[in-house]
Design a protein around this nucleic acid. Structure first.
Lengths: 135, 135
DNA sequence: TTTAATCCCTATCGGTATAGTGGGGTAATG
DNA sequence: CATTACCCCACTATACCGATAGGGATTAAA
């Protein structure tokens, strides 16, 4: 299950991406239109900024904007950066690998092998999706 | 991410499935071989029993055993029963559906549509796997 | 018939993460 | 210079997770 934070982040990103005409989008506007707690959203947009996805402008008329065109923002990376691993168990994660304490040999662990299959099928979907594709 | 509970449950099920010769498998044996906290495992096996996957025999020489042949135990159902939804957001779950509080219209929600694709690709893998397939 | 093995049930607990709130800055624009 | 809006820190309430403890019920075997 995705955390609410991740879901909010995705919704905010798509919202901003849709406002191509405007230079910036205000947090208050996003929070209102997407029904997200304002303060909570601020924190999320801040992390998106620190991750390099968004730029911001302070002062009157300020707000957030995409740093890269939506076509170049891959959903896989976005999800990984906010939520963490795509895989269902750490021992099959490509980017957040952790060895299981319990199982001695990964190659013979039936759970391990099954979860690799699941991971790969998920990746196949997410790797071919950009932010532009989903708006 | 799968909870540890689910992972333990899967490992226990596969362990029991592999012991075709024996009539019953003891919790202590599973806990030792799979490195799972004994008391915690007891609780898990109990829920697997209540879910209808396992039968049990009390007393000396007792233990757990599969109620159905491994070929007839689908991984999708097992996962759903223990972990819950396969989907990444409740609003695309087939078996545990919940409406989002925030988004007004699911059909136009970009997150919704993306997560349907992810769900379907995961289901495609899990629906064609039985317990027998992964041991 | 006693004893030991084994499942079964209830309660509890510390840790951690999540979702959200509050207050107060600080920087830039008009 | 005042307003707007981003930025940062601390705090809290809730919930779940993994695990532990202690005992009770049942059965097979000695």
């Amino acid at each position: 299950m995705l955390s609410r934070k991740t879901k909010y982040a995705l919704k905010a990103m798509t919202y901003i991406a849709r406002q191509e005409g405007k230079k910036t989008v205000q947090t208050a506007v996003i929070s209102e239109n997407e029904n997200i707690s304002h303060k909570y959203l601020e924190a999320i947009l801040l992390t998106l900024k620190n991750l390099g996805y968004l730029g911001s402008k302070k002062g009157k008329g300020g707000g957030y904007y995409l740093l890269k065109p939506a076509e170049e923002i891959q959903m896989v990376n976005l999800l990984r950066n906010i939520e963490g691993p795509i895989a269902m168990v750490p021992c099959v994660s490509l980017n957040y690998y952790e060895k299981c304490e319990d199982c001695a040999d990964e190659e013979t662990c039936s759970v391990h092998l099954l979860m690799i299959e699941v991971r790969d099928s998920t990746l196949k979907v997410l790797e071919n999706k950009s932010l532009a594709d989903i708006i």
